[in-house]
Design a binder for these strands. Sequence first.
DNA 1: CGCCGGTTTGAAGAATTTCAAAGGGAGTGG
DNA 2: CCACTCCCTTTGAAATTCTTCAAACCGGCG
Lengths: 244, 244
Amino acid sequence: MRRTGDVLGPLVTRLAAIGSLTESDIDALLALPYTLREGKPGWEIVREGDRPSQCCLILDGTFGRFKMAAQGAKQIVSYHIRGDLPDLQSCFLPAMDHTLSALTVGTVAFIPHAAIRHILEETPLLGAKLLRESFIDSSVTREWLCNVGRRSSESRIAHLICEMFTRHRAAGHVDQFTFPFGLTQVAISDSQGMSTVHVNRVLQKLKANKLISSHAKSKAITILDWEGLQAVGDFDPRYLHILH
Amino acid sequence: MRRTGDVLGPLVTRLAAIGSLTESDIDALLALPYTLREGKPGWEIVREGDRPSQCCLILDGTFGRFKMAAQGAKQIVSYHIRGDLPDLQSCFLPAMDHTLSALTVGTVAFIPHAAIRHILEETPLLGAKLLRESFIDSSVTREWLCNVGRRSSESRIAHLICEMFTRHRAAGHVDQFTFPFGLTQVAISDSQGMSTVHVNRVLQKLKANKLISSHAKSKAITILDWEGLQAVGDFDPRYLHILH
DNA sequence: CGCCGGTTTGAAGAATTTCAAAGGGAGTGG
DNA sequence: CCACTCCCTTTGAAATTCTTCAAACCGGCG
C-alpha cells in the first residue's frame, strides 16, 4: 500500500481490500478534502433525522449505527472500524434513518458530499469502488439479521467475534490472533438482541471452552481456537467480500 | 404516471415513489432491454454463489431473499414486490451472498448489467435514482434487524404487516385497507426469527384484538385498525423513504 | 476515598421453542 | 367425481432458553 501515512490512507487500505485500485484512484482518494474530528464513547456523529452535508470516514476507534425501538430499546445495526464509510448513503437519501455514534474513543474524517458526488459523476469507475463499500455494508447487515434471527446466542457472539477479527485483520489491525475489541457487554447485547446478563454468560462459556481469552486492560480479545470459533459461530467470511 | 402500461412501468412507479423523475428519466427507464420470466413458489431466481450478468426487476408476486444458517435454518432477509430491484448490488459485487426466490407465483424482468451500468456511467443523475432504491433496501434491512433484535413477537408481526401494507400502497396495490399478502406462516417465521407455531398464535392474537382480518381464499389481509396496528408494531414509515 | 460505568452472580419468571398430532383446502390421478 | 396427497394451519403440552430483577463486585479516575 502506497502512502498509508496519509490521513486518508485507511480509506485506500479499505477499498484496496475489497477491490483493485489504480494509481490514479489512489491519488484521487488521497486528495479528497476532509475535516478531522475526535470524540469519546457516546459521541453522536450524525443523528436520526439529520440531513448531513458530509460523509464520515472512520480513522480510528469503533463506531456503531443504531436505531431506537419502543421503550428505549436500542438496536445497534453495525459496527465500524478504520477505513469504513458508514454513511455514504447520506449522499443519496437526505434524511438519516439511524444514528452513528462512537463506542470507543475515536477519530473520523468528514468528507463533503460534494467531493463524493464529484467522484461518482466524473469518475464512475472509482465511484463504483466506493459504492462497493456500501453494498458490502448491506451484505453485513443481512448477515447480522441472519445471526439475530436464526443463530443461538452462543453462535451469535462467536460469529460477531469472527467478523470483527476478520475485518480488523483486513484493516491491518491484528497481531497474530489478538485484536482490539473495545465493545462493552452492553454494546454487544444491543447489537445481538440479547440481555447484558446473557452476553456475560455466553462470553464466559466461550472462554471456558478455550475459544477466546480477553484482556480487560488492553480491551483486546485473543482467539485461542480460530477453527473452533468459526465452527461455533457458523462463520463463513464470504459475506464480507474481502479479496483474498 | 405516464405509460404505466409499459412492461417496465412498475420500475417507473417505484422510482417515482422515492424520488422525482424527469421525462427523459422515464424514457430511459422504459427503454431498458429486458427478458420476462414467470415462476411458482420456490423458484430460485439467483442463488448464493452465482455471478449473474443481469438484474432482476419484480413485476408481480412476492419474492424473498434468504440466507441459510447452520442445520438448515433459513433467514429471509427481505421481501420484494412489484417495482423492486432486489439485486442491483450484483452490478457491484460479483458473487451473490444470498438467494432470491419466489414466495408466490410471480413475474420478473431481467435487465442486463450492461444496460444498468450504461445508465450509471452515462447519466449519473438517473443512476443515483436507481441507487436510491438499493440504499432504501439497506434501510429496510436495518429496520428488520431492529425488529428481530428488539421487538416482541407481537410487535414484530404487526410491524411487518404495516410495512407490507405501506409498500403495497406505494406500489398502487391496495384497495382501501386490504392488500395482497401471499406469505405462508412458514415464510413469516423465517423472516422474523420465530417458530411457525408462534407466528400462528401471534396472528390469532392480532385478529382477536381486531387489528387485522385475513381472507384465506384471496390470500389478502385487511387492516381493521391502522392506528392500533402501527402502535402495536412500533411502526414509523420514515425508514421506507417514500415521498409523501 | 468514593463514585461510576461496567461486569458478574443468583434465582425466579416469562417468552418461546420443540415435539407430536390433528385438521383443512386445493390440486391430482385413478 | 372421489380418494389421496401435499402443504399449510392449528392445537396442546412439555421443555428450554433467555429475560428480568436485584445485588454484589471490580477497577480506574477525579
